[in-house]
Design a protein around this nucleic acid. Structure first.
Lengths: 165, 165
DNA sequence: CTGATTGCAAATGCTTTGCACGCCA
DNA sequence: TGGCGTGCAAAGCATTTGCAATCAG
């Protein structure tokens, strides 16, 4: 679990007059136990595997809280459900590339992109708050070799392939 | 209506072995009658106002078709429903800025952004296909003057303010 | 104590689908 | 005529909500 989460959350909870509950603690631990993106349902499953007594509604409610506290970020991967990204604490301004061939999501940072977007935003008369860049792309290797290493990798790891419904 | 749509659509329809129907013609005319973004429900309403005999299902199905034909693009404005953008024919690679204060959506183009994203994508070993940048920002004028011209404008025009649900 | 939190099930809202009928090519 | 397209209502899915019971501070 990334250092500082508990503190930041306690802070948020105190400021908002909220309460520490076992359910919240547990859900938060699960959410930040890996650096993988997840949906509400996926987190619910993950939670259920080790703690059978947390309801789906509480998972949803806690996720909203974490987003509000800016510990978690909602991202849109184009599959008609909200995906949560726990990596913005480590990499505050990364972006996402989605491989059209296999659905694999690649995170990347680029200071130039940030800077440029910032300039464009100000030129338009706005103060930038948040930006999300999603790049959809084909894997070059699949194109050249007829095989997509990501696709193979995702088969091996059994990672869920994102798809439009 | 943007020139070339009918031709491109006819082409698509022919290639796919589909049919020209009154419903499709009508929905397409409605979709491209303004340069405003719209949701499926909004288009349905728009269509219903002038033609009472087109069903919601047909609107949804036709929208999918138009997206597949690359005449319409789906964009995510963060309000948990698909928004359709009819302006990609005119401006093939524009992006969106969403004003946090009033929900107003501003379209903008910037060749530098395109180029940079292209480079980044290739460096990662991918061939870029499509990119969507969404910038969320505050209106500087609201901050400085306590009044947001966009907010006022949107009140005047009665434009729907986008909001999280 | 007392209001925040939870669990459950029902409700919501957008979108898709099954099926019988109708219409384009 | 063959099947693609349509309309309708029902189904699906992710997500939210009302409410009574429970728990944290």
């Amino acid at each position: 679990m990334v250092a500082g989460i508990q503190e930041r959350l306690d802070d948020f909870v105190r400021r908002k007059g909220l309460r520490r509950t076992q359910q919240r603690e547990f859900i938060i631990k699960s959410a930040f136990s890996k650096d993988e993106h997840f949906t509400a349902e996926e987190l619910f499953d993950r939670v259920r595997k080790t703690n059978a007594h947390i309801s789906r509604a509480t998972v949803y409610r806690t996720l909203s809280l974490l987003v509000e506290a800016d510990l978690l970020r909602e991202i849109d991967l184009g599959d008609n459900q909200t995906t949560y990204d726990p990596n913005f604490l480590d990499k505050p301004s990364h972006n996402h590339l989605v491989c059209i061939d296999c659905g694999r999501v690649v995170e990347f940072e680029d200071a130039h992109i940030d800077l440029l977007n910032d300039c464009v935003t100000r030129r338009l008369g706005f103060k930038p708050v948040r930006q999300s860049l999603k790049i959809e792309a084909n894997c070059e290797q699949l194109r050249n070799n007829g095989r997509c290493p990501n696709l193979i990798a995702s088969r091996l790891t059994g990672k869920r392939l994102r798809k439009k419904r």
